Simulated assay, not measured.
Amino acid sequence: MRITLRTGDITAEICDAIVNAANSSLLGGGGVDGAIHRAAGPELLGACRQVRAGQLPEGLPAGQAIATPAGRLSADWVIHTVGPNRHAGQTDPEVLVSCYAASLSEAQRVGAATVAFPAIGAGVYGWSAAETAAAAGQACNVQDWDGIDEVRFVLFSPDIHAAFAAVFSEADG
């Protein structure tokens, strides 16, 4: 599995699946979540409402992931995961690792060979860039992710890019 890093806009990525740092409602929000929902259009919101009406009426718990069609994005899938919110007392780093691992598992399930991730938890949820990068690294190395050819981390700032580069020193991009 190839790891690439870049600073940029995750909604512009051409890949099979884009991971959304969602809130538990799955109905949009700020940051990456809001940007993905805006770019994907009403189709994504409709798919998320179906998930909420069916299998997740209480919302998506932190550390889990679920895939929906990607609406107007160039990707086929949006994989939603909810990071633990440090400001709300959710401080277990294993839940953060689980966000990445559960998203990779969903990517395998839907047959996504290329997956673009943001820095889950590094925004308003209060995790440091180093903690987020370490969690991503641990999840990528926890097992062979058969069928996934590339994991691309699309990071919103140079400092977060630097933290991921420290973990994935062999990565290009």
Rank of each mutant, 00 (worst) to 15 (best):
A166V: 08
W127G: 00
W145Q: 01
V154M: 07
S103G: 14
F168R: 10
A101P: 12
S128I: 01
Q138V: 13
L104T: 08
V142F: 12
A101R: 15
F117P: 03
V124A: 14
R109F: 07
N141Q: 09
V142G: 15
I160E: 00
T114W: 11
Y100Q: 01
A107C: 11
H161M: 11
A136K: 04
G137H: 10
G121Y: 01
V167T: 11
G121F: 01
A162D: 08
W127D: 00
A139D: 01
E106V: 09
I120L: 11
G147W: 02
A136V: 13
C99L: 01
E106S: 13
L104Y: 03
F117N: 01
W127P: 00
W145I: 03
G137A: 12
A135E: 00
A133E: 00
S128R: 03
L155R: 09
A116Y: 04
R109V: 04
A136F: 03
A163N: 08
V154W: 07
A122P: 05
G137S: 08
S105R: 12
F156G: 13
F153E: 00
V167N: 02
G111W: 03
E150G: 09
D146E: 10
G126Y: 02
R152S: 10
V110K: 09
D149C: 11
D144Q: 14
Q138C: 12
F117I: 04
V110W: 06
P118K: 12
T132Q: 00
A101V: 15
R152I: 05
